[in-house]
């Protein structure tokens, strides 16, 4: 090998190795920094609420469940409350118990057959529609499914 060739080869090899090491740091480094962003909570997480036969036909029943929310290394526990309604025992719907007006908790008043918000007298029908009072829209609805007699709710919607 001529001296110049050898020199060229060594130069290129050295630069190539330096580049390789650089990439060796950069690729995992970038992936490491970006990885929390890529992690979309994505698929709906189904939370068990309880047995489906606890729900009387035509009467909303309140279910409460604990949800652990993890962000990074910090886990927080939250309680969700969902009214589950069915009219035929097959189709179930889940409603948030938070009033769409100012965030008070609504409760089911069986006598009136309606949801009532005590803060400003908001009234919702059994299917979550606004009946009276200041709420701007009906109660938020969550997807609900029943599997093996258990009701699951997804809070993603």
């Amino acid at each position: 090998m001529a001296p110049m060739d050898r020199r060229k080869f060594l130069s290129r090899a050295t630069v190539a190795i330096a580049a390789a090491i650089g990439i060796g740091w950069a690729v995992p480094g970038v992936a490491y920094v970006l990885s929390p962003a890529k992690k979309k909570t994505g698929e709906a997480e189904w939370i068990v609420l309880g047995a489906a036969d606890r729900v009387d036909i035509g009467t909303p029943s309140l279910f409460k469940a604990k949800v652990t929310k993890t962000s990074g290394w910090v886990s927080t526990e939250a309680e969700v409350a969902v009214y589950v309604v069915t009219h035929d025992g097959r189709e179930f719907r889940g409603f948030s118990n938070v009033c769409t007006h100012l965030g008070c908790r609504v409760r089911w008043v069986a006598d009136q057959n309606e949801f009532f918000c005590p803060c400003h007298n908001g009234v919702f029908s059994v299917d979550g529609q606004v009946v009276a009072g200041p709420p701007p829209r009906g109660l938020d609805e969550f997807p609900v499914k029943v599997e093996d007699g258990q009701i699951f709710v997804s809070l993603e919607a």
Binding site: R7, S11, A13, T14, I17
Partner: peptide
């Protein structure tokens, strides 16, 4: 590049 090559 001669010495640095070894280092690399």
């Amino acid at each position: 590049p001669n010495a640095l090559f070894k280092d690399a």
